[in-house]
Structure formats: structure tokens, C-alpha cells
Amino acid sequence: MPEPILGQGGRGSFPDPEPAGDRAARRADARRRRSNARIIRHRQDGVPGGEAGMATAEYAIATLAAVAFAALLVAVLSSGEVKGLLMSLITSALNFG
């Protein structure tokens, strides 16, 4: 068993059993493998290239539908019959107390 080398603070540490270049190469290989695995996972989970813009088109259609519904609601609420009904409801609520 090799003798510990005394470093800062008096704690002993053993010399590295391998050269620093081998350790750096192993770290680089491990980092490359993790990166490749991450890219493969992303491609498997992602949307195929031909359908990448579908979310934008769906948002546009939903926005148009919401605007059309709002226009219909404004048209209904601004009709004379509905205005009279709402005004009588509000007047009776205010005069109740």
C-alpha cells in the first residue's frame, strides 16, 4: 500500500493511480455518450419535421373561433329584447332594497 501524501490541512491523500490524460479522455467519452443519448431521446419524443407547424395553425383556428363567438355574443346582447330584459333585471334588483 503506498504511503499517503500530506496535503493542505495535514490530511493524507493517495497519489492518482492513472495519468491525468487517461482520466480526461474517459470524461470526454462519458460526456459525449450522455450528449448523444440526450439527442436521441429528444428526437424520439419530438414531433416529426412535417408537422412541426401544426400547433401554430391550431392556435390560429382556435383564436378565430373565439373571436367569432365573441362577435355572436355581442350581437345577441346588443339586441333590443335582451337589452330590455337586462335593464328590467337590473332595475328590479336595485329597487328591491
Rank of each mutant, 00 (worst) to 15 (best):
M1P: 07
M1L: 10
P2A: 06
E3Q: 10
E3M: 06
E3A: 09
P4Q: 02
I5L: 01
L6P: 00
L6F: 03
G7E: 00
G7M: 00
G9H: 03
G10H: 00
G10D: 00
G10C: 00
G10L: 00
R11I: 03
R11L: 04
G12Y: 00
S13D: 01
F14Y: 07
F14T: 01
P15E: 00
P15R: 01
P15Q: 00
P17L: 01
P17C: 01
E18C: 02
E18S: 04
E18Q: 06
E18N: 05
P19Y: 02
R23D: 01
A24E: 08
A24C: 05
A25W: 05
A25T: 03
A25I: 05
R26Y: 02
R26S: 05
R26K: 07
R26C: 03
R27M: 07
R27G: 10
R27Q: 13
A28D: 09
D29M: 07
D29I: 06
R31D: 12
R32Y: 07
R33N: 09
R33P: 00
R34A: 15
S35V: 12
N36G: 15
A37K: 13
A37M: 11
R38I: 07
I39V: 14
I40N: 14
R41V: 08
R43G: 12
Q44R: 15
Q44T: 10
Q44E: 12
V47D: 05
P48Q: 09
G49Y: 11
G49F: 13
G50Q: 13
G50C: 10
G50R: 11
E51M: 14
E51F: 11
E51G: 11
E51P: 03
A52I: 11
A52Y: 09
M54T: 14
M54Y: 11
M54R: 15
M54I: 14
A55E: 08
A55N: 13
T56I: 13
A57H: 10
Y59V: 13
Y59Q: 15
A60V: 05
A60E: 10
I61V: 12
I61W: 05
I61S: 10
T63D: 14
T63E: 14
L64M: 13
L64D: 12
A65R: 15
A65L: 14
A65W: 06
A66Y: 04
A66C: 09
A68V: 11
F69T: 13
A70F: 10
A71T: 12
A71K: 08
L72F: 08
L73V: 08
L73E: 12
V74P: 00
A75L: 03
V76F: 13
V76E: 09
V76L: 14
S78E: 06
S79V: 08
E81S: 12
E81Y: 08
V82A: 02
L85F: 04
L85G: 02
M87K: 06
M87C: 06
L89E: 05
L89P: 02
I90D: 01
T91G: 11
S92D: 09
A93L: 07
L94Q: 05
N95D: 07
N95P: 03
F96W: 11
